[in-house]
């Protein structure tokens, strides 16, 4: 086990995906037959999914369709009723160092006594360990991550004093500090201002350009076609997955949202043309 995780760390530092013959088996994130239930009702039922490297994938579906649940179950943050998860072909426990996670902004208490830079440094905790000393280089790295999201001026601000968009950027900076190969973001664009949305998408696109896998739970159908390469449509069960060009179609959206999307609304979206 120790040997394996050592290899993973090396691969993570090189920024390369491990090569394996089976594309699904070595995908940045693959889930198979995942079911999660709250009480007696499945929130996610028997979902198979593969999220590719060097691409941005949107997980799309109506409220309560299990988007965030799927993400959390894949991370092991909430228990699964059944199913398996692999990260770069490894069980998740050995591949944690290659994953960065951005939880929903509303999931934490922003009244917590911490400054912006404190939060970004949390992204390095795994690497520093419990007692390791924080080096100047690590501090500089945290500052660089903060600069990347345009928040350098706020490093010493208490997190409760930030706007919603600024908080979201701090969370993204923390994920950047993790130096991962797979980025999982839960509703990163929810309730943020336009400037923040642009800043976040720029960062995510540069991650993609570096060959990383980016997976976002996403709400805004209007921006799917411009931001993302792949979509994963879910409503408790998987409805469809694939490149935006072939999968983000009116028929699939109807199957996902039922009658909740008016036909006119669907027409306005920059939908793929079902060839």
């Amino acid at each position: 086990m120790a040997l394996r995780s050592a290899q993973v760390t090396v691969a993570a530092q090189d920024g390369q995906a491990l090569r394996a013959p089976d594309p699904v088996a070595s995908a940045p994130l693959a889930v198979r037959g995942v079911t999660v239930s709250y009480g007696e009702k499945p929130a996610v039922f028997s979902v198979d999914a593969t999220f590719p490297a060097g691409a941005m994938t949107a997980i799309i579906g109506p409220n309560g369709a299990g988007k965030s649940t799927l993400l959390k179950a894949a991370l092991g943050v909430i228990p699964r009723l059944s199913g398996e998860v692999s990260v770069f072909g490894q069980p998740i426990e050995t591949a944690r160092a290659r994953i960065a996670y951005v939880p929903q902004r509303a999931s934490v208490d922003w009244d917590f006594p911490a400054s912006v830079i404190d939060v970004v440094l949390m992204g390095l905790y795994r690497r520093i360990g419990l007692l390791g000393r924080l080096t100047g280089a690590q501090r500089a790295k945290a500052n660089a991550c903060l600069a990347r999201v345009g928040m350098s001026d706020f490093a010493d601000r208490q997190i409760g004093q930030l706007s919603g968009g600024q908080q979201q950027r701090v969370f993204l900076a923390r994920a950047l500090a993790q130096d991962a190969d797979l980025y999982l973001l839960d509703e990163p664009f929810a309730g943020v201002d336009a400037a923040t949305e642009r800043a976040i998408i720029d960062v995510l696109k540069s991650l993609k350009a570096d060959g990383k896998a980016v997976v976002c739970v996403h709400h805004d159908l209007a921006t799917v076609a411009t931001y993302f390469d792949h979509v994963f449509l879910i409503n408790v069960r998987k409805i469809a997955e694939g490149p935006v060009a072939t999968t983000f179609t009116g028929a699939n959206l109807n199957a996902t949202y039922g009658g909740r999307l008016a036909a006119t609304h669907i027409d306005q979206l920059a939908l793929a043309d079902p060839a």
């Binding site: 959390k72 939880p103 905790y125 419990l130």
Partner: peptide, 21 residues
């Protein structure tokens, strides 16, 4: 002192701490 970082991160953001393993 020893568990300072763990305590801090799991108190602030348990989901993130879970994801870190």
């Amino acid at each position: 002192l020893v568990f300072w970082r763990w305590l801090k991160i799991s108190t602030f953001d348990e989901g993130f701490a879970d994801a870190l393993g």
